[in-house]
Design a protein around this nucleic acid. Structure first.
Length: 416
DNA sequence: TCTGGGGTCCTAGGACCC
DNA sequence: TCTGGGGTCCTAGGACCC
């Protein structure tokens, strides 16, 4: 059996743990740059504040309804997340950390799955103060649905729901709307509706042959999983395949130089992330996007891939390539709103293959180590390249940030 | 004035190989 | 008139996830 353990309203719940004043008030957490709402407490949901609401349009609404608005505090959430996962690992080593706030567990116990789920839930609540929902079923896709039921009916289920027989499975599938199925997004929902499907149950009535012919192997696997035939397995902990640094700008840019400065910083950040996990990349994708909300402006969305002759994690190499590439992508007259760098083809430093004709520049390796050491030592005062945004005229908007209670001694909670 | 960011997986099509 | 088949690798783009 598989269990899916999911923290309820994770970001909002993390804030509550350390700030009792928020215990009963509606809360909304904002995205980077304080742009839109990405997490809400149950009270805020009940008031009608939608997910993804751009805050500038909903500011008054929040004020009228006394919704507390907070900037996102990723150091706090990341730390609370790893504490949650540590607790779950006490129950089984077979765990897949699926996202910051949820994990799949493979359970091999003989009886009473419900009691087991209750135990997991209570331990996380008691030790961390975080409420969770637990769904248990024979497959991953079904455990997602069980989880949704537990979440939807907290009183009746006490936060834990187990699908352990055919009746429950069929009932759950008929209850689940297409769009609520894990793996069915809005596009797929439309295509399935055209086939006459409304619920997950309707979807699994479609014949295998039709699914393979008109959809793909992905949907076929999903169908099997929903039928109770385990097809989606627990994913091993594996190295990342890509590392990204992408941002929306706080304003739009029409000036190539400004974009070059930003893209150079994104590339530098990717290089730092690579070095931190002791790996290198052999290619890099540069993205450039115009303002999608500016309907009158010219739209221009491009991405371009660059390959290196041998795997690298040097800030110099990545920044230079990124800046050179962006020059070829930029179109004058377009208002650009977002850009990013993604490094792919990641390989561990210990077994990277060098090019036969070129020697790895060891000087650069030493330089990078020196830069990383300095940046670590003088936290906040970074050594940067000349083509990065040295003046740093922009800054991330985080006007309502809570303290880093668990990861910074200066911000630790004070008990009076 | 102000609309997130970081990932994964799949497919199609082209280039190239024997 | 007739011109194979099977494979890999790469890139771009789409869809989906939280």
């Amino acid at each position: 059996m598989y269990a899916l353990v999911d923290c309820n309203n994770f970001y909002a719940s993390c804030e509550r743990v350390f700030n009792p004043n928020l215990q009963f008030s509606p809360i909304a957490i904002l995205s980077n740059n304080d742009g839109c709402v990405i997490s809400r407490s149950d009270e805020a949901k009940a008031l009608g504040l939608p997910m993804g609401a751009p805050i500038f349009k909903w500011e008054n609404f929040c004020k009228q309804n006394n919704i507390e608005i907070l900037s996102s505090n990723y150091p706090l959430y990341g730390d609370m997340s790893s504490r949650t996962m540590e607790i779950l690992k006490q129950f089984t080593p077979d765990i897949e950390v699926y996202s910051i706030d949820e994990a799949f567990l493979k359970l091999n116990i003989l009886d009473d799955y419900n009691a087991y789920g209750i135990q997991m839930r209570q331990r996380i609540l008691k030790w961390l103060g975080l409420p969770t929902s637990v769904g248990i079923a024979p497959t991953k896709a079904l455990s997602k649905i069980a989880n949704k039921i537990a979440r939807k009916y907290p009183k009746k289920t006490k936060g834990v729901y187990v699908i352990d027989n055919e009746n429950k499975r069929i009932k759950a599938l008929k209850w689940t709307k297409l769009n609520d199925v894990w793996g069915i997004g809005s596009r797929l929902e439309k295509r399935l509706q055209a086939k006459g499907c409304k619920t997950a149950y309707d979807f699994i009535q479609l014949p295998d042959a039709l699914i393979l012919k008109e959809f793909s192997i992905v949907e076929w696997r999903l169908k099997k999983d929903l039928q109770g035939i385990p097809t989606l397995k627990l994913e091993e902990v594996k190295n990342k395949q890509a590392i990204a640094t992408t941002r929306s700008f706080e304003t739009t840019y029409t000036d190539l130089n400004a974009i070059k400065e930003r893209i150079s910083t994104f590339a530098a950040r990717c290089a730092e992330k690579l070095r931190a996990q002791q790996s290198s990349c052999h290619s890099m994708v540069i993205l450039l996007r115009s303002d999608r909300f500016d309907t009158s402006g010219k739209q221009h969305n491009v991405s371009r891939c660059v390959s290196f002759s041998y795997p690298t994690n040097s800030t110099l190499t990545l920044c230079n390539a990124a800046v050179k590439t962006i020059e070829t992508m930029f179109k004058a007259g377009v208002k650009y709103k977002r850009a990013g760098v993604i490094v792919t083809g990641l390989i561990s430093n210990t077994n990277k293959q060098l090019n036969f004709f070129e020697k790895e520049d060891t000087k650069q390796l030493h330089l990078m180590r020196a830069i990383d050491d300095l940046n670590f030592k003088y936290n906040g005062y970074k050594v940067k390249l000349g083509n990065q945004d040295l003046k740093r005229t922009w800054k991330m908007k985080q006007e309502r940030l809570s303290p880093k209670y668990t990861t910074n001694f200066d911000e630790i909670i004070i008990v009076k």
